[in-house]
Each structure stands twice: as structure tokens, then as C-alpha cells.
Design a binder for these strands. Structure first.
Lengths: 332, 332
DNA sequence: TTGAAAGCGCTACCAG
DNA sequence: CTGGTAGCGCTTTCAA
């Protein structure tokens, strides 16, 4: 089933069918009608591969994320996608599950598809892969891969500031024994949160005791890490989690051990995903404007109108501390 | 950057480069090495559109889901994807957000891409769209679109049985005033759950009072629907939710109103997503084997080995009732 | 073991 | 307003 067959049936040339399908250039309406009729009768659907090959153009954007099961990534994707759709772009999504091989495969796929732009919202990006993308010379937006450079745009969130507020708040409430529940991936944004936590905590005097544990980026991971933490004998009065998802896991573990939040232990999350308001107690967290990230990424990827090329520049987004019920004054 | 250029640099023909890249047919290893070297130096990535066009074949499967923000859909997708990846297929994902236009667009996209198979895990599928897919003659697996037919495979879950267990359990515990929190989409699986609820509830004597409200398929939707329910003056002792996500929203609303679960009101979900064990109280629900659905869907889509063509047949999956903390005996 | 050439289905340019 | 035709980049016979 091809353009050719439609052309034959409508008794016109392939060129004309193409014009009708892309409604471009003048086509007599009677001809147009005849073509459309043939298209319908033959149940014809243009082959997108052929179209892209011939046209050279490509209105498809690629998005790669680390963990779609974490609402943070989904929200960023969703806002980027709807902005793109509204502007007439298609979006391809790839999920790596933090696995380097899948990241590589996804990048190759996107390059092979000759996407018009790529948003890499992943924390496991390494220098080699960045090079790969640069060499392919496809417009790329990264999320927190560190210093941008060349044709690369980098969107960063000022995690440090957010994390400082969290720890300061806890310290002010009298917490002297804190723990950090992070996840396995030390690179990128989540690693930065952990580093910041440890640095900030180290500055207090009298000193604040602290300890760090890690787990998978999931509710189960948060629960296990918390279990390990508590099993180690350390008795934190506050647990700072790398994100909301893991914080919900921490909440579960604490409850299972008969500990009350926030009376016995305070807990904080990060991201302010919707779940943070639906768990109980409601999570104290740091809001990261995910839809702003998605929309901004798209704005730097679209190429129809002239956009400022921020070569090597990083755009920084400010997070916002949100105090809710999961935090209270330090217990004995 | 094309095959041609690589061929030129390696001083071989395009055909040979193609052979090396697809490692097929005999190629002298010295030639192979030369080609690989040229590929690396040129940072060449084959154009997948050209490849698909020329080859005719296509190892890409399409998956369309209604709401990726609901873990149910994500879980099905994920298991299907990993089965597919392991078997050497690529997977394209499209999310409709329950919007009919996006469903149509997604289907057209998949057909245009000439995917090797399509899994439509959506509840808003209508007869017209099913025809569209049939006409495109692409192997398709539907999720609960009702009676299958023609080349179509349909995977169904015996919701009725699951819902009966839920209502029976509640009735046994003495609940005489029940409410159903459903979502806007009356078609497909979720509509069936609602219908079943109403039918089962109607059978009891003395009669069980009941009422149904609906909202969006999200935690917020569940909260709002519950708010509307309670605002109407009806005082259910048990709230049966169409799925876990909305049940978590119901939990939130009840807590906000100072009602204790399960002491004052019992709540049930459906699906048994991971969240059901991480909220509190833990949700009584019905387990739907999502990974089984994903894997099964893939098995009916793969075409390398001969598979039984279940024309017009429906395969049925059994759900399992899971009693947890969100249910208790009826309050006064 | 390798090369030449014929498409795959479509768009875009050039005539008419 | 419409048709002819040259590619787009790759795979795949068919010969050599």
C-alpha cells in the first residue's frame, strides 16, 4: 500500500497525492476530493520512514529519563511532551531504569532516528556519552550533568539551596542526629543532594551526628535503606531523603517499627511530587518545578523560530522549601 | 553522513559496509576491520528510517496506554518492554491521557511507523478505532475491549470475580451503606468494575444502600470524588474505589475530615500497585498480575517463532483478593 | 568475498 | 494546477 497506488486509483500523479496529504501548494478541490476518496477507500497511511527519509526534516524530539516509575521524571516528560505536541512536534520516550547499557542503546536509537532534538533527563550520563551526542550534532538539553559546554544546554536546579533549607530547618528544631537516605546513583542531581547534606551537616557546632545509607530509587528502596539504617543501631531524630518516593518508603518502615512521624522521627523528601501530599503525614519537602523544566527544555530544543543559543551556558532553576507535617521538634 | 561516505573512506562498496554493520554473509576480517575503523572515525550512525524502508522488516513494537501516571499502566508497559527488549525488539510508547484525539494520533503514528505489532492498553478504544487497526492488518493485542474478533487478541481480567469478593467481604463485615468511587471513563475495565459493583450490591437483602461518584483517574480525582460524596450527605461505612490510585485520594479526604480508616470508614482499592502497601493504612485491594499481562501481550505480538493465532479468542486472567488494613467491621 | 544496481515510499524541484 | 523525476540512505539480489 503506497502513495503510488493511491495515485493510480485517483488517476493523478504521486506528486499530487503528496501535495494533498501535506496540504501544500494549490490543488484543485475536485482533484483533492478524488485523492482523499482514494485514500479512504484504500485505507492508506503514509509511511513515516519514507517521509522522513525523503523530506530530510524531522519533527520528532527524543526524551530519555532514568526512572519513569518515579513521578518526578514522568512529570517532566509530560510537560515537555504537551508543549511539544502543541507546537506540532512528536515525542519519543525512552526509559533507562538507571542502566548504562540502556542509556547507550537509547541514545543510539535517538541518533539513528535523526531526532530534531534530545532531552536527556538522566543522572547516569558520563563524559563519553556527552561526546557521542556532541559528535552527532543534535541539539541537546541535559538535566544537571554539571557544567555545560559546546552546543549543549544544561538545566540545573539549585539543589544546594534547597538542601540547606531542609537541614537548617531540622537543626533549628533541635535535631542533633540526622540520617540521609540516598539512592545508588551517586552521579548527577541526587549525588549533589547527598554531598550538600554532608557538607551542611558538618558545619554545625555542637556537631550533629549523621549517617548515610542508600537504596534503589523506589519506595521499596527507601524502606530497605531505612531498615538498614535503623538496624545499624544509629537512632536519628530526623531522616532526610533524597526524594519523595524514597521518603514514602522511609515512612512505611518507621510506622512498621512503631515509630511515630514526626513525634519520634522527622522525615523530609525532595521534589514535591503529588504523592508528597497524599501520604501521611504529609511530607515536608523541596518543590522542584518540573513543568518549568519540561517546558524550558522544549524551548531550547525547538528550532522553528530563532532561539538564543546558549552555548555552554547553564540555566538555573530555584527550588522552594515546603514545610508540612512530617517534621517536628527533635525528640529525646 | 551516510553509508556511502563510510564506504568511500574504507575503499569498499556500500554493500560491504552494510554487510559489516549487520554482520551477515562472509566478509574478510581485514575488510571488516577497515570498515569498522572508518565507521568509528566518521562517527557514523546508520539512519534507521532508511534501514526500515529498505529492509521492509521492522523490529519495533508499539504500546499505547491511557494514563502513564497511574502505576498500573506503567507496570504493564515495563514488563512488556523488558520482554521485548530481551527478544531483540524495540518498543515505542504513547500515552493518551484518556483523550480520544491523542489515541487516534497515536494509532496513526504507530501505523505510519509500520510497527510489527501493537498493544493497546487503553480503555477508551471504540469500534471505529478497532476497525482502523484491523484494516491496517497489524498484529494487535487489546486489553479488555470486550469480545475479540478477527485477527485481534484480547486480554481480559475477570474483574467481576474480583469485585464480587470485595463487596462480599464488606457485606460480611456488616457494611450496609457503600459507595463506589469510579472514574470518568465508563468504557472498558473500569466501567465494568462499576457495573459489577452496582449489580452485586443490588442483590442483598436487607438491601444495601449505595451511591456512585466519579472523578479523574488520579489521587486528586479520588479525593475530589470522595469529597463530593461526603458533601452530599450520604454516610457510607465503606468506600469501594475503582483503583488504588483513587483509593489513596479517598484516604486523604477521609483523614482531612477527621474520619478514621478503617474504624469509621472502610476503603478498598483495585490493582494492587506498589503504592497500596506504602500508604496507610495499607489498602485492601484486588491484585491484577500486571507483569503477566505485559508478558502475555508480548508473546502474542512476537512473530519470529510460530505462535498460536488466537483469532477472536480472549485470554482471561484471574485476579486475587488481598485483605489488608483499610477494611474493618462496619461502624455504627 | 566483493561490487553494481535496483528498489523501498515519499518529497521536492522543474517543467508544462 | 499537475506530472515527471531525481534523490533521501539503506538492504538485497545478481554477478563477478
Amino acid at each position: 500500500m503506497s502513495l503510488e497506488e493511491v495515485a493510480r486509483r485517483a488517476r493523478v500523479s504521486a506528486a499530487t497525492v503528496s501535495r494533498v496529504l501535506n496540504n501544500v501548494e494549490p490543488v484543485k478541490s475536485s482533484t483533492r476530493a478524488r485523492v482523499l476518496k482514494a485514500v479512504a477507500e484504500l485505507k492508506y497511511h503514509p509511511n513515516l520512514h519514507a517521509r522522513t527519509l525523503a523530506g530530510g526534516r524531522n519533527r520528532t524530539l527524543g526524551v530519555i529519563v532514568s526512572n519513569l516509575a518515579n513521578p518526578f521524571f514522568f512529570d517532566v516528560f509530560e510537560s515537555l511532551e504537551s508543549a511539544a505536541l502543541a507546537a506540532g512536534y512528536d515525542v519519543m520516550l525512552a526509559n533507562t531504569g538507571y542502566e548504562p547499557e540502556r542509556l547507550v542503546a537509547s541514545i543510539r536509537l535517538m541518533i539513528g532516528q535523526r531526532v530534531a532534538g534530545l532531552a536527556a533527563i538522566v543522572s547516569e550520563m558520563d563524559a563519553r556519552l556527552i561526546r557521542l551526542l556532541q559528535d552527532a550534532s543534535i541539539p541537546t538539553v541535559f538535566y544537571d550533568v554539571g557544567p555545560a559546554g559546546g552546543e549543549i544546554t544544561n538545566i540545573a536546579v539549585d539543589y544546594r539551596k534547597g538542601m540547606e533549607k531542609v537541614v537548617d530547618c531540622l537543626h533549628t528544631l533541635g535535631h542533633q542526629r540526622m540520617a540521609f537516605v540516598g539512592h545508588h546513583n551517586e552521579l548527577g542531581p541526587t549525588g549533589e543532594r547527598q554531598k550538600t547534606f554532608e557538607e551542611v551537616v558538618a558545619h554545625y557546632s555542637p556537631p550533629v551526628q549523621h549517617r548515610t545509607v542508600t537504596g534503589a530509587d523506589s519506595m521499596e528502596g527507601g524502606q530497605r535503606a531505612t531498615s538498614e539504617l535503623l538496624g545499624s543501631g544509629f537512632r536519628p531524630t530526623a531522616i532526610v531523603c533524597v526524594n519523595d518516593l524514597m521518603a514514602v518508603g522511609a515512612l512505611r518502615e518507621l510506622r512498621d517499627r512503631g515509630l511515630d512521624v514526626p513525634r519520634d522521627v522527622s522525615v523530609t523528601g525532595f521534589d514535591n511530587v503529588r504523592l508528597a501530599q497524599f501520604c501521611s503525614p504529609r511530607l515536608t519537602t523541596v518543590h522542584i518545578p518540573r513543568s518549568q523544566i519540561g517546558v524550558t527544555a522544549f524551548e531550547y530544543l525547538r528550532s522553528d523560530r530563532e532561539r538564543p543559543r546558549l552555548a555552554g551556558q547553564s540555566i538555573v532553576i530555584e527550588p522552594e522549601f515546603i514545610l508540612r507535617d512530617s517534621v517536628g521538634v527533635a525528640s529525646a
